[in-house]
Amino acid sequence: MKALDKANLDKFVELLSEEFNVYSITDTDFSTDFDNNKALEILKPIKSAKEIVFPQTEPLFKFDLVGKEIVVNEKQNSTNLMLWIKPCDVRGINILKKVFEKDVKDVYFANKLNNTIFVGLACNNPSRNCFCTSVSITPYYKEGMDVFATSVNGAIIFEALTEKGKEVLEKVNSLLRDATKDEVEKAKEIHLQAENKVRRYNFNTSRLTWDSDVWRISEICLSCGICTYLCPTCHCFDIIDENYVYEGERIRIWDSCMYSEYTLQASGHNPRAYRLQRLRNRIMHKFVWFKEMFDEYACTGCGRCVSYCPVNISLIEILGGV
């Protein structure tokens, strides 16, 4: 395993930036405009990493409004590198991958995913609302990462997990040294410490039945889009045409199943007109139907929906976590 002394962090980012669009963590989101030292410290941004592979507003193609012809967008060729992405956010992208690649492949998602390298960082300071270990991942979950890193005292130690990952480490090789045995041991210790720190719940998804009392919590739901927009696994979208003067664009934008307009049909009929129906649909999709389809929960335990719900509706409570 390789190690980088934190004193060389600036140079490390600089070297990577020569070849990749380096995105890292800011308070709000993943951005190319980040603070090298802070990015390493912030647990996770308010927004999840999903927008790198599934942007909130994404052009599908352009069109010419006069001739009524479609103009296909050029493909993006530069490579993005997600620096210090946390296990829960990578997990989110793994879950999105299942949806977007099932049956019909979503080329926009697939292209972005192919063009992105994930340099993940073990989470060493889980927050109050984290519950990743209750949805079967850990603060050192690596699947989907190309490089897995752990911050150990004055150094960051790296493990390349894929060919792409090896290439990335090759690129910054001049700054790296071999990790000491102590550091490797310490990393393992940090992983376990973090894992123990995350609060573990015994979720009881069998209580999520159609007529369950748990849905009564929807009485206080504001039906805003916070939980869905911040969620690393929510992937509902809308497709709309945006017109300018002579040209326009068909774009897809995030949509939220919590909005009443989401299912409103042109006839005026709305199969999910009430907040209860919408909340139930969202939670059951994540913990019952997704499980039926893909044999796992569409939840990474990042806790964003719990932290940011304006009226303190807690997923943990809904799932019967005590």
Binding site: V99, F100, K102, D103, V104, D106, H235, C236, F237, D238, I239, R252, D255, C257, Y262, T263, L264, Q265, A266, P271, N281, M284, H285, V288, W289, F290, E292, M293
Partner: peptide, 24 residues
């Protein structure tokens, strides 16, 4: 059945009934 649909390929989410997508 008829639901509001957008993507038509079982991704965008709005036409689900339980785990089934009306479009797909």
């Amino acid at each position: 059945l008829e639901k509001r649909m957008k993507c038509g390929i079982g991704k965008c989410g709005r036409c689900n009934i339980g785990s089934l997508y009306v479009c797909k």
